[in-house]
Design a protein around this nucleic acid. Structure first.
Lengths: 215, 215
DNA sequence: GTCATCATGTAAGCCGTTACATGATTGC
DNA sequence: GCAATCATGTAACGGCTTACATGATGAC
Protein backbone atom coordinates (compact mmCIF):
# COMPACT_ATOMS: atom_id res chain seq x y z
CA UNK A 1 0.00 0.00 0.00
CA UNK A 2 2.50 2.59 1.10
CA UNK A 3 5.03 1.30 -1.39
CA UNK A 4 2.50 1.72 -4.17
CA UNK A 5 1.77 5.29 -3.12
CA UNK A 6 5.44 6.19 -3.00
CA UNK A 7 6.17 4.67 -6.38
CA UNK A 8 3.12 6.43 -7.79
CA UNK A 9 4.38 9.81 -6.62
CA UNK A 10 7.86 9.16 -7.94
CA UNK A 11 6.39 8.45 -11.39
CA UNK A 12 6.02 12.19 -11.78
CA UNK A 13 9.44 13.26 -10.66
CA UNK A 14 12.24 12.86 -8.17
CA UNK A 15 11.31 13.64 -4.60
CA UNK A 16 12.85 13.47 -1.17
CA UNK A 17 11.17 11.84 1.81
CA UNK A 18 9.88 14.95 3.50
CA UNK A 19 8.20 16.11 0.32
CA UNK A 20 6.75 12.67 -0.36
CA UNK A 21 5.11 12.77 3.02
CA UNK A 22 3.55 16.15 2.26
CA UNK A 23 2.17 14.98 -1.08
CA UNK A 24 0.86 11.68 0.17
CA UNK A 25 -1.86 13.53 1.99
CA UNK A 26 -2.60 16.13 -0.65
CA UNK A 27 -2.45 14.27 -3.91
CA UNK A 28 -3.50 10.78 -3.11
CA UNK A 29 -6.32 11.64 -0.74
CA UNK A 30 -4.76 9.51 1.94
CA UNK A 31 -6.49 10.20 5.17
CA UNK A 32 -3.75 10.32 7.73
CA UNK A 33 -0.30 11.75 7.48
CA UNK A 34 2.11 8.90 7.21
CA UNK A 35 4.64 9.20 9.99
CA UNK A 36 8.37 9.34 9.40
CA UNK A 37 8.76 6.16 11.35
CA UNK A 38 6.86 4.45 8.54
CA UNK A 39 8.00 6.44 5.57
CA UNK A 40 11.77 6.37 5.93
CA UNK A 41 12.06 2.65 6.58
CA UNK A 42 9.78 2.13 3.57
CA UNK A 43 12.06 4.22 1.38
CA UNK A 44 15.11 2.37 2.68
CA UNK A 45 13.37 -0.92 1.90
CA UNK A 46 12.51 0.19 -1.63
CA UNK A 47 16.07 1.36 -2.16
CA UNK A 48 17.47 -1.93 -0.89
CA UNK A 49 15.12 -3.73 -3.26
CA UNK A 50 16.38 -1.64 -6.16
CA UNK A 51 13.04 -0.01 -6.90
CA UNK A 52 14.37 3.48 -6.24
CA UNK A 53 17.80 4.98 -6.02
CA UNK A 54 18.95 8.19 -4.45
CA UNK A 55 20.29 10.81 -6.81
CA UNK A 56 21.96 14.17 -6.38
CA UNK A 57 19.47 16.98 -5.81
CA UNK A 58 18.67 19.21 -8.79
CA UNK A 59 19.64 16.45 -11.16
CA UNK A 60 18.64 17.22 -14.74
CA UNK A 61 15.92 14.61 -15.31
CA UNK A 62 12.95 16.19 -13.62
CA UNK A 63 11.91 18.28 -10.65
CA UNK A 64 13.25 21.32 -12.46
CA UNK A 65 14.70 24.01 -10.18
CA UNK A 66 11.71 26.29 -10.88
CA UNK A 67 13.58 29.03 -12.63
CA UNK A 68 17.22 29.95 -13.35
CA UNK A 69 18.06 30.01 -9.64
CA UNK A 70 16.18 29.77 -6.40
CA UNK A 71 17.54 33.14 -5.34
CA UNK A 72 19.31 31.45 -2.50
CA UNK A 73 23.05 31.51 -2.95
CA UNK A 74 23.86 29.10 -0.17
CA UNK A 75 21.18 26.74 -1.52
CA UNK A 76 23.00 26.61 -4.82
CA UNK A 77 26.26 26.00 -3.06
CA UNK A 78 24.76 23.19 -1.07
CA UNK A 79 23.46 21.66 -4.27
CA UNK A 80 26.90 21.88 -5.82
CA UNK A 81 28.45 20.33 -2.78
CA UNK A 82 25.94 17.51 -2.88
CA UNK A 83 26.45 16.99 -6.61
CA UNK A 84 30.21 16.80 -6.09
CA UNK A 85 29.93 13.47 -4.32
CA UNK A 86 26.68 11.60 -4.38
CA UNK A 87 28.02 8.84 -2.23
CA UNK A 88 29.69 10.99 0.39
CA UNK A 89 26.51 12.95 1.06
CA UNK A 90 26.66 14.87 4.34
CA UNK A 91 24.97 12.94 7.06
CA UNK A 92 21.59 14.67 7.16
CA UNK A 93 21.02 16.53 3.93
CA UNK A 94 18.18 15.95 1.49
CA UNK A 95 18.11 12.54 -0.06
CA UNK A 96 16.31 12.65 -3.37
CA UNK A 97 14.87 9.44 -4.73
CA UNK A 98 14.27 8.46 -8.31
CA UNK A 99 12.29 5.56 -9.69
CA UNK A 100 14.34 2.86 -11.41
CA UNK A 101 13.19 0.61 -14.24
CA UNK A 102 12.88 -2.13 -11.68
CA UNK A 103 10.71 0.22 -9.62
CA UNK A 104 8.42 0.80 -12.58
CA UNK A 105 7.93 -2.92 -12.90
CA UNK A 106 7.19 -3.21 -9.20
CA UNK A 107 4.74 -0.32 -9.48
CA UNK A 108 2.88 -2.07 -12.27
CA UNK A 109 2.71 -5.28 -10.28
CA UNK A 110 1.48 -3.60 -7.13
CA UNK A 111 -1.08 -1.54 -9.00
CA UNK A 112 -2.51 -4.53 -10.83
CA UNK A 113 -2.40 -6.86 -7.85
CA UNK A 114 -6.04 -7.41 -7.08
CA UNK A 115 -5.81 -9.37 -3.89
CA UNK A 116 -3.66 -7.25 -1.62
CA UNK A 117 -5.19 -4.58 0.55
CA UNK A 118 -8.88 -4.72 -0.17
CA UNK A 119 -9.97 -1.82 1.99
CA UNK A 120 -11.40 1.48 0.88
CA UNK A 121 -8.11 3.35 1.09
CA UNK A 122 -6.38 0.85 -1.16
CA UNK A 123 -9.14 1.30 -3.70
CA UNK A 124 -8.95 5.10 -3.58
CA UNK A 125 -5.23 4.96 -4.06
CA UNK A 126 -5.47 2.65 -7.04
CA UNK A 127 -8.18 4.70 -8.65
CA UNK A 128 -6.15 7.87 -8.11
CA UNK A 129 -3.40 6.18 -10.07
CA UNK A 130 -5.95 5.09 -12.67
CA UNK A 131 -4.22 6.70 -15.61
CA UNK A 132 -1.52 4.03 -15.34
CA UNK A 133 -4.11 1.31 -15.96
CA UNK A 134 -5.81 0.16 -19.13
CA UNK A 135 -9.50 0.77 -19.58
CA UNK A 136 -10.13 -2.91 -18.89
CA UNK A 137 -8.09 -2.97 -15.70
CA UNK A 138 -9.75 0.20 -14.45
CA UNK A 139 -13.18 -1.20 -15.17
CA UNK A 140 -12.37 -4.37 -13.27
CA UNK A 141 -11.06 -2.35 -10.36
CA UNK A 142 -14.28 -0.36 -10.25
CA UNK A 143 -16.45 -3.45 -10.58
CA UNK A 144 -14.71 -5.24 -7.75
CA UNK A 145 -15.15 -2.23 -5.50
CA UNK A 146 -18.77 -2.00 -6.60
CA UNK A 147 -19.36 -5.58 -5.53
CA UNK A 148 -17.67 -5.07 -2.19
CA UNK A 149 -19.69 -1.94 -1.45
CA UNK A 150 -22.93 -3.58 -2.56
CA UNK A 151 -22.26 -6.49 -0.25
CA UNK A 152 -21.51 -4.23 2.66
CA UNK A 153 -24.60 -2.15 1.93
CA UNK A 154 -26.76 -5.27 2.01
CA UNK A 155 -25.32 -6.21 5.39
CA UNK A 156 -25.85 -2.76 6.84
CA UNK A 157 -29.36 -2.45 5.46
CA UNK A 158 -30.15 -5.85 6.87
CA UNK A 159 -28.80 -4.93 10.29
CA UNK A 160 -30.74 -1.68 10.29
CA UNK A 161 -34.05 -3.33 9.48
CA UNK A 162 -33.91 -6.50 11.52
CA UNK A 163 -32.03 -5.93 14.74
CA UNK A 164 -33.32 -4.17 17.77
CA UNK A 165 -31.26 -1.02 17.79
CA UNK A 166 -31.84 2.03 19.89
CA UNK A 167 -32.29 5.34 18.15
CA UNK A 168 -28.62 6.34 18.22
CA UNK A 169 -27.27 3.08 16.91
CA UNK A 170 -29.98 3.14 14.24
CA UNK A 171 -29.06 6.67 13.30
CA UNK A 172 -25.47 5.59 12.77
CA UNK A 173 -26.22 2.56 10.64
CA UNK A 174 -28.73 4.48 8.57
CA UNK A 175 -26.19 7.14 7.80
CA UNK A 176 -23.73 4.42 6.97
CA UNK A 177 -26.22 2.88 4.56
CA UNK A 178 -26.82 6.28 3.02
CA UNK A 179 -23.11 6.84 2.49
CA UNK A 180 -22.68 3.40 1.00
CA UNK A 181 -25.49 3.80 -1.51
CA UNK A 182 -24.04 7.14 -2.48
CA UNK A 183 -20.69 5.43 -3.06
CA UNK A 184 -22.44 2.78 -5.08
CA UNK A 185 -24.09 5.32 -7.37
CA UNK A 186 -20.75 7.05 -7.86
CA UNK A 187 -19.09 3.78 -8.78
CA UNK A 188 -21.86 3.00 -11.22
CA UNK A 189 -21.40 6.33 -12.96
CA UNK A 190 -17.68 5.70 -13.25
CA UNK A 191 -18.20 2.20 -14.60
CA UNK A 192 -20.65 3.47 -17.17
CA UNK A 193 -18.15 6.11 -18.26
CA UNK A 194 -15.41 3.50 -18.63
CA UNK A 195 -17.69 1.22 -20.61
CA UNK A 196 -18.57 4.07 -22.93
CA UNK A 197 -14.92 4.89 -23.56
CA UNK A 198 -14.22 1.21 -24.07
CA UNK A 199 -16.79 0.81 -26.84
CA UNK A 200 -15.93 4.12 -28.41
CA UNK A 201 -12.18 4.32 -27.94
CA UNK A 202 -10.78 7.82 -28.26
CA UNK A 203 -7.19 8.99 -28.15
CA UNK A 204 -5.43 8.13 -24.92
CA UNK A 205 -6.56 4.63 -24.17
CA UNK A 206 -3.67 2.41 -23.35
CA UNK A 207 -0.61 4.54 -22.90
CA UNK A 208 1.40 3.93 -19.75
CA UNK A 209 -0.93 1.06 -19.30
CA UNK A 210 -0.79 -2.18 -17.43
CA UNK A 211 -1.21 -5.32 -19.45
CA UNK A 212 -4.81 -6.32 -18.86
CA UNK A 213 -4.81 -10.08 -18.49
CA UNK A 214 -1.46 -11.80 -18.97
CA UNK A 215 -0.32 -13.25 -15.67
CA UNK B 1 -11.80 1.35 21.47
CA UNK B 2 -12.42 -2.36 21.49
CA UNK B 3 -12.80 -2.32 25.25
CA UNK B 4 -15.46 0.34 24.96
CA UNK B 5 -17.35 -1.65 22.38
CA UNK B 6 -17.26 -4.80 24.48
CA UNK B 7 -18.41 -3.01 27.62
CA UNK B 8 -21.16 -1.34 25.62
CA UNK B 9 -22.48 -4.67 24.39
CA UNK B 10 -22.34 -6.16 27.86
CA UNK B 11 -24.49 -3.30 29.17
CA UNK B 12 -27.43 -5.04 27.61
CA UNK B 13 -26.82 -8.54 28.86
CA UNK B 14 -24.33 -11.28 29.50
CA UNK B 15 -22.56 -12.57 26.44
CA UNK B 16 -19.81 -14.99 25.54
CA UNK B 17 -16.90 -14.10 23.28
CA UNK B 18 -18.13 -15.72 20.10
CA UNK B 19 -21.44 -13.89 20.36
CA UNK B 20 -19.74 -10.60 21.16
CA UNK B 21 -17.77 -10.92 17.99
CA UNK B 22 -20.94 -11.47 15.97
CA UNK B 23 -22.66 -8.45 17.46
CA UNK B 24 -19.71 -6.12 17.16
CA UNK B 25 -20.23 -6.04 13.45
CA UNK B 26 -23.99 -5.96 13.40
CA UNK B 27 -24.91 -3.63 16.23
CA UNK B 28 -22.11 -1.17 16.45
CA UNK B 29 -21.56 -0.68 12.76
CA UNK B 30 -17.94 -1.66 13.12
CA UNK B 31 -16.51 -2.20 9.73
CA UNK B 32 -14.36 -5.24 10.07
CA UNK B 33 -14.93 -8.38 12.03
CA UNK B 34 -12.70 -8.30 15.02
CA UNK B 35 -10.56 -11.39 15.00
CA UNK B 36 -10.40 -13.83 17.87
CA UNK B 37 -6.77 -13.06 18.30
CA UNK B 38 -7.81 -9.56 19.33
CA UNK B 39 -11.07 -10.30 21.08
CA UNK B 40 -10.11 -13.03 23.51
CA UNK B 41 -7.00 -11.32 24.84
CA UNK B 42 -9.10 -8.18 25.27
CA UNK B 43 -11.69 -10.10 27.28
CA UNK B 44 -8.96 -11.67 29.39
CA UNK B 45 -7.50 -8.23 30.01
CA UNK B 46 -10.87 -6.82 31.04
CA UNK B 47 -11.44 -9.75 33.34
CA UNK B 48 -8.01 -9.34 34.91
CA UNK B 49 -8.79 -5.65 35.43
CA UNK B 50 -12.05 -6.56 37.16
CA UNK B 51 -14.28 -4.87 34.60
CA UNK B 52 -16.04 -8.11 33.70
CA UNK B 53 -16.35 -11.48 35.35
CA UNK B 54 -17.30 -14.80 33.89
CA UNK B 55 -20.55 -16.27 35.13
CA UNK B 56 -22.34 -19.56 34.67
CA UNK B 57 -24.35 -19.66 31.45
CA UNK B 58 -28.10 -19.13 31.75
CA UNK B 59 -27.65 -17.21 34.97
CA UNK B 60 -30.82 -15.44 36.03
CA UNK B 61 -29.86 -11.78 35.58
CA UNK B 62 -30.34 -11.31 31.89
CA UNK B 63 -29.90 -12.98 28.52
CA UNK B 64 -33.09 -14.92 29.24
CA UNK B 65 -33.11 -18.41 27.71
CA UNK B 66 -35.66 -17.27 25.15
CA UNK B 67 -38.50 -19.47 26.32
CA UNK B 68 -38.99 -22.25 28.84
CA UNK B 69 -36.36 -24.41 27.19
CA UNK B 70 -34.32 -24.32 24.06
CA UNK B 71 -35.77 -27.60 22.98
CA UNK B 72 -32.36 -29.13 23.23
CA UNK B 73 -32.13 -31.66 26.03
CA UNK B 74 -28.38 -32.03 25.96
CA UNK B 75 -28.03 -28.27 25.90
CA UNK B 76 -29.91 -28.06 29.16
CA UNK B 77 -27.77 -30.78 30.61
CA UNK B 78 -24.64 -28.95 29.58
CA UNK B 79 -25.95 -25.81 31.22
CA UNK B 80 -26.62 -27.73 34.44
CA UNK B 81 -23.15 -29.19 34.34
CA UNK B 82 -21.64 -25.78 33.84
CA UNK B 83 -23.73 -24.28 36.64
CA UNK B 84 -22.63 -26.99 39.01
CA UNK B 85 -19.09 -25.67 39.12
CA UNK B 86 -18.37 -22.28 37.68
CA UNK B 87 -14.71 -22.51 38.49
CA UNK B 88 -14.13 -26.03 37.23
CA UNK B 89 -15.58 -25.21 33.84
CA UNK B 90 -14.64 -27.77 31.20
CA UNK B 91 -11.68 -26.60 29.23
CA UNK B 92 -13.40 -25.26 26.14
CA UNK B 93 -17.03 -24.59 26.88
CA UNK B 94 -18.79 -21.25 26.63
CA UNK B 95 -17.47 -18.57 28.90
CA UNK B 96 -20.15 -16.00 29.59
CA UNK B 97 -19.09 -12.56 30.71
CA UNK B 98 -20.97 -10.07 32.83
CA UNK B 99 -20.25 -6.42 33.44
CA UNK B 100 -19.18 -5.58 37.00
CA UNK B 101 -19.78 -2.28 38.79
CA UNK B 102 -16.14 -1.53 38.19
CA UNK B 103 -16.74 -2.25 34.53
CA UNK B 104 -19.60 0.24 34.43
CA UNK B 105 -17.30 2.90 35.81
CA UNK B 106 -14.68 2.05 33.22
CA UNK B 107 -17.32 2.19 30.49
CA UNK B 108 -18.36 5.66 31.58
CA UNK B 109 -14.77 6.84 31.58
CA UNK B 110 -13.98 5.41 28.18
CA UNK B 111 -17.16 6.77 26.67
CA UNK B 112 -16.60 10.28 27.99
CA UNK B 113 -12.87 10.34 27.27
CA UNK B 114 -12.61 12.88 24.51
CA UNK B 115 -8.97 12.56 23.59
CA UNK B 116 -8.51 8.88 22.89
CA UNK B 117 -9.16 7.46 19.46
CA UNK B 118 -10.19 10.41 17.35
CA UNK B 119 -10.91 8.59 14.14
CA UNK B 120 -14.23 8.11 12.42
CA UNK B 121 -14.82 4.62 13.84
CA UNK B 122 -14.33 5.83 17.39
CA UNK B 123 -16.90 8.53 16.78
CA UNK B 124 -19.43 6.11 15.27
CA UNK B 125 -19.00 3.80 18.20
CA UNK B 126 -19.50 6.57 20.75
CA UNK B 127 -22.53 7.91 18.97
CA UNK B 128 -24.01 4.41 18.76
CA UNK B 129 -23.71 4.30 22.52
CA UNK B 130 -25.21 7.79 22.71
CA UNK B 131 -28.06 6.87 25.02
CA UNK B 132 -25.54 6.43 27.81
CA UNK B 133 -24.54 10.09 27.51
CA UNK B 134 -26.24 13.26 28.66
CA UNK B 135 -27.63 15.67 26.12
CA UNK B 136 -24.69 17.95 26.79
CA UNK B 137 -22.06 15.26 26.35
CA UNK B 138 -23.71 14.05 23.15
CA UNK B 139 -23.81 17.56 21.76
CA UNK B 140 -20.16 18.06 22.51
CA UNK B 141 -19.32 14.75 20.86
CA UNK B 142 -21.21 15.80 17.74
CA UNK B 143 -19.65 19.25 17.70
CA UNK B 144 -16.14 17.92 17.97
CA UNK B 145 -16.76 15.55 15.09
CA UNK B 146 -18.32 18.39 13.14
CA UNK B 147 -15.18 20.45 13.58
CA UNK B 148 -12.93 17.60 12.56
CA UNK B 149 -14.96 16.87 9.44
CA UNK B 150 -15.17 20.56 8.53
CA UNK B 151 -11.41 20.84 8.82
CA UNK B 152 -10.84 17.80 6.68
CA UNK B 153 -13.34 19.04 4.12
CA UNK B 154 -11.48 22.34 3.87
CA UNK B 155 -8.23 20.49 3.26
CA UNK B 156 -9.73 18.26 0.61
CA UNK B 157 -11.52 21.10 -1.15
CA UNK B 158 -8.31 23.06 -1.13
CA UNK B 159 -6.33 20.16 -2.57
CA UNK B 160 -8.95 19.63 -5.27
CA UNK B 161 -8.93 23.24 -6.41
CA UNK B 162 -5.27 24.14 -6.20
CA UNK B 163 -3.12 21.18 -7.02
CA UNK B 164 -2.46 19.83 -10.44
CA UNK B 165 -4.29 16.52 -10.31
CA UNK B 166 -5.06 14.27 -13.21
CA UNK B 167 -8.67 13.36 -13.87
CA UNK B 168 -8.67 10.18 -11.77
CA UNK B 169 -7.07 11.70 -8.71
CA UNK B 170 -9.44 14.63 -9.04
CA UNK B 171 -12.40 12.31 -9.31
CA UNK B 172 -11.38 10.64 -6.06
CA UNK B 173 -10.87 13.82 -4.07
CA UNK B 174 -14.10 15.29 -5.40
CA UNK B 175 -16.04 12.26 -4.27
CA UNK B 176 -14.28 12.49 -0.95
CA UNK B 177 -15.33 16.13 -0.63
CA UNK B 178 -18.87 15.18 -1.53
CA UNK B 179 -18.97 12.48 1.12
CA UNK B 180 -17.52 14.82 3.72
CA UNK B 181 -20.02 17.57 3.08
CA UNK B 182 -22.78 14.99 3.29
CA UNK B 183 -21.39 13.90 6.66
CA UNK B 184 -21.25 17.51 7.73
CA UNK B 185 -24.90 18.12 6.90
CA UNK B 186 -25.86 14.97 8.80
CA UNK B 187 -23.92 16.11 11.86
CA UNK B 188 -25.56 19.51 11.67
CA UNK B 189 -29.02 17.94 11.65
CA UNK B 190 -28.13 15.84 14.68
CA UNK B 191 -26.70 18.81 16.55
CA UNK B 192 -29.80 20.83 15.84
CA UNK B 193 -31.95 18.00 17.14
CA UNK B 194 -29.91 17.77 20.33
CA UNK B 195 -30.10 21.51 20.86
CA UNK B 196 -33.84 21.43 20.44
CA UNK B 197 -34.22 18.67 23.02
CA UNK B 198 -31.88 20.57 25.30
CA UNK B 199 -33.92 23.76 25.31
CA UNK B 200 -37.19 21.93 25.46
CA UNK B 201 -36.37 19.05 27.78
CA UNK B 202 -38.80 16.20 27.50
CA UNK B 203 -38.94 13.00 29.50
CA UNK B 204 -35.80 10.92 29.20
CA UNK B 205 -32.98 13.41 29.38
CA UNK B 206 -30.35 12.29 31.80
CA UNK B 207 -31.06 8.74 32.70
CA UNK B 208 -28.12 6.32 32.46
CA UNK B 209 -26.16 9.43 31.80
CA UNK B 210 -22.57 10.42 32.16
CA UNK B 211 -21.91 13.40 34.36
CA UNK B 212 -21.43 16.22 31.88
CA UNK B 213 -18.54 18.28 33.20
CA UNK B 214 -17.18 17.22 36.58
CA UNK B 215 -13.73 15.79 36.10
C1' DG C 1 -18.91 -42.35 15.29
C1' DT C 2 -18.09 -38.75 12.56
C1' DC C 3 -18.50 -34.30 10.54
C1' DA C 4 -19.83 -29.45 10.69
C1' DT C 5 -20.16 -25.88 13.64
C1' DC C 6 -19.55 -23.49 17.84
C1' DA C 7 -16.16 -21.89 21.02
C1' DT C 8 -11.74 -20.58 23.30
C1' DG C 9 -7.32 -19.68 23.16
C1' DT C 10 -1.85 -18.99 21.65
C1' DA C 11 2.09 -17.53 18.59
C1' DA C 12 4.26 -15.10 15.01
C1' DG C 13 4.39 -11.29 12.57
C1' DC C 14 2.94 -7.00 9.97
C1' DC C 15 1.98 -2.36 9.93
C1' DG C 16 1.93 1.72 11.86
C1' DT C 17 2.47 5.04 15.71
C1' DT C 18 4.84 8.08 19.14
C1' DA C 19 8.97 9.63 21.08
C1' DC C 20 13.47 10.42 20.66
C1' DA C 21 18.08 11.80 18.57
C1' DT C 22 20.57 14.18 15.20
C1' DG C 23 22.08 17.06 11.51
C1' DA C 24 21.44 20.87 7.77
C1' DT C 25 19.52 25.48 6.13
C1' DT C 26 18.03 29.85 6.51
C1' DG C 27 16.44 34.23 8.38
C1' DC C 28 17.41 37.58 11.70
C1' DG D 1 25.55 33.16 16.60
C1' DC D 2 20.92 31.49 17.40
C1' DA D 3 16.35 29.97 16.71
C1' DA D 4 12.99 28.01 13.59
C1' DT D 5 12.30 24.92 10.29
C1' DC D 6 13.59 21.39 7.16
C1' DA D 7 15.18 16.75 6.89
C1' DT D 8 16.59 11.97 8.06
C1' DG D 9 16.68 8.43 10.83
C1' DT D 10 16.13 4.82 15.21
C1' DA D 11 13.76 2.50 19.18
C1' DA D 12 10.03 1.04 21.73
C1' DC D 13 5.71 -0.18 21.59
C1' DG D 14 0.73 -1.35 20.50
C1' DG D 15 -3.03 -3.10 17.94
C1' DC D 16 -4.64 -6.20 14.88
C1' DT D 17 -4.33 -10.17 11.63
C1' DT D 18 -3.41 -14.80 10.15
C1' DA D 19 -2.45 -19.30 11.20
C1' DC D 20 -2.48 -22.75 14.30
C1' DA D 21 -4.09 -25.87 18.18
C1' DT D 22 -7.68 -27.55 20.93
C1' DG D 23 -11.99 -28.83 22.86
C1' DA D 24 -17.35 -29.11 23.10
C1' DT D 25 -22.00 -29.75 20.85
C1' DG D 26 -25.34 -31.41 17.91
C1' DA D 27 -27.13 -33.54 13.60
C1' DC D 28 -27.20 -37.55 11.04
Amino acid sequence: MLDLAILGLLQEGDLHGYEIRRRLRQSLGLVSNVSFGTLYPALARLEAAGAVRSVAPLAPTSEAPSGPATGSLSGELAALRARRSTLARPKRSKKVYRLTDEGRVLFTELLADTGAGDDARAFSLRLSLGRHLTVEARTRLLERQHDRVALRLAEVTDAASSAELDSYARCVVEHQADTLSNDLAWLERLIAAERASQHQPTTTSGRHAVAPANS
